[in-house]
Amino acid sequence: MKKVIGISGINATDNPGPGCGVARSLIETEKDLNLIGISYDVNDPGNYLPNLFSNSFLMPYPNEGFEVTLNSLQEIKQKSGLDIIIPCLDVELPLMIKNQDYLAKIGIKTLLPTIEQFELRNKEHLTQLSKEIGCLHPKTTTIFNISELAEELRNYDFPVIIKGKYYQAFTCYNVENAILKATEIAASWGFPILLQERVSGQEVNMIALANKEGKVKGRVAIKKQLTTNIGKVWTAVSIKDNRLEKICDSFVEKTKWRGPFELEFISNQEGVYLIEINPRFPAWVYFASAIGINLPKMLLEILENGDCENNFDYPFGKYMVRYSAEFVSDLEPFQNLISYKNRNGL
């Protein structure tokens, strides 16, 4: 019987989630899998991609609490036989992480860090963590209200970066602009927000996977060549930088991280600045898979067999180009998602 893998983050717009990339990585190499989409929005493109997902289920938003989420997951398990879930959205991760043992009890496996490990990489802790793992971090202040922001901006040169705790970051060129963007972010995601100096340089990212014992099993580094106007990678090239590899290994050693993650850096003459740690696969996960480091597949091996082989060998100079495409579906999947909360109308 095929293993049923639930994958979230299946939006695939110009700000794509990682879910479709994770699914593509798995479906192209493992035929004996049944992938299902876990979605929070009927309009997520992944809901309409039968080549990746045999079915797709709508979930209540994570802010409705774990009991509501759990009920929904149990219903999905009942209808699909869900064995494993690979969460790919920042906002759902705290809930999944806190309740991973409970999920295991009801037969849904995950490979996630502990909540303590997860908290260590929070944006407001990165200054300290960066020191401990041997890299730089831009000057950053955690802001809890707008008047505090106005005060703190006196200590920064423009432009500055205004960041949300989970999502969104804006480059701001004056006080009014900074306050406007901070207000917008706070309205969507609440406080705290982060005020950060802007560091110039090359944007380089690393994707990696750590096993249950907190050991790095595979990693790939890229340089962003072209980004969208909100900084999402559109074209990229694979690179090998020993400094990034050391930082990645130190991060895992320090935190004993379990599961996938992405390190975002800016590299310049002064060194390597750690900008952000995403506690999940990034949207460009398929790039790593396509050049031989299939981390979603390795994640499944860890969950099924306890561990997997190390895989660090990939070619540098491979070029990734993202593109958008259109496809046409019947209306029925949309109707089913609305009426039955799943594409197939179960």
Binding site: I239, K240, D241
Partner: peptide, 19 residues
Amino acid sequence: SHLSVSKSGLAFDSRNGDS
């Protein structure tokens, strides 16, 4: 060794992706 050069004469630095 970190430089690779294509037939068209494009040198690629594998450490940082510069060409």
